[in-house]
């Protein structure tokens, strides 16, 4: 399965996402923001970083880049799309996912090994997890506070669109501890923490068993390999 990773100017974790796809057993393909060619990929990852410097609003400019018109089309037709951190912000700006992301409530950038609960596994990116499973994945952001109005929040909860929730510590003031969302179809998922940083023993978060041994993020990339285009 070919999984594309889009590099925007200012993307930082694109190479990490490519590595994660390879480690999961997929074929990783680099895609460029300025083109309209998705190179026949079967799924797409929007990586973390500060696309276009995140001037204006995080993800706002990237959401209007040439390749995003293709991504939005493909997503609407059911292609699996994962947005990580800045990629999540882009998906929200592109209206593929609900709500908004604002400056962390404590005002500073935060990097920590974050515990999450997987709330929904009926998606292209979470089907290898089990409902209620707790995973540890690195989080690193300055603007990860998830917001939406009460009505939207109730709808997201009611429709089972919350994909991940922060456990123990809410690191950025996200409403209802929401760390990640899915769309109604289940092909589009976005989250602030970085699954691509928990895929390789020796370079992941510290776990009780051993330092840097956490690989809880790998299942997200394995999930998409198991998924077919969702209708």
């Amino acid at each position: 399965m070919r999984v594309g990773v889009i590099t925007f100017p200012g993307s930082l974790d694109d190479r990490d996402a490519l590595r994660a796809i390879t480690l999961a057993g997929g074929e990783a393909v680099s895609l460029w923001h300025g083109e309209h060619d998705l190179q026949g990929v079967d799924a797409i990852v929007l990586p973390g970083g500060f696309s276009y410097g995140d001037y204006l609003r995080c993800g706002a400019i990237a959401a209007h880049s040439p390749i995003m018109s293709e991504v939005i089309d493909a997503a609407n037709k059911g292609m699996p799309v994962l947005g990580i951190c800045n990629g999540f912000q882009v998906l929200v700006e592109a209206h593929l996912l609900a709500g908004g992301l604002i400056r962390n409530d404590h005002g500073t950038f935060i990097r920590r090994d974050q515990k999450l609960r997987v709330e929904n596994v009926d998606t292209a990116w979470t089907n290898k997890y089990s409902v209620g499973q707790e995973i540890v994945i690195p989080l690193k952001n300055g603007e990860g506070g998830f917001i939406a109005d009460e009505e939207t929040l109730d709808r997201l909860e009611g429709d089972g669109l919350v994909a991940f929730r922060y456990v123990d510590v809410n690191p950025n003031g996200s409403l209802r501890d929401i760390a990640g969302l899915r769309n109604a179809r289940g092909n589009v998922v976005g989250l602030m923490p970085h699954p691509e940083h928990a895929v390789e023993p020796g370079f992941g978060p510290d776990m009780p068993e051993a330092m840097s041994s956490g690989t809880d993020g790998l299942a997200m990339f394995q999930s998409v390999l198991a998924a077919t285009v969702l209708s």
């Binding site: 895929v199 370079f203 840097s212």
Partner: peptide, 24 residues
Amino acid sequence: TNQYDYYVMGNTALHTPDGAGMIR
């Protein structure tokens, strides 16, 4: 150091508070 990203690039083998940083 919680305000610094040590994960990016995926090659960090040791980092604060380890006495030395190490990169693959």
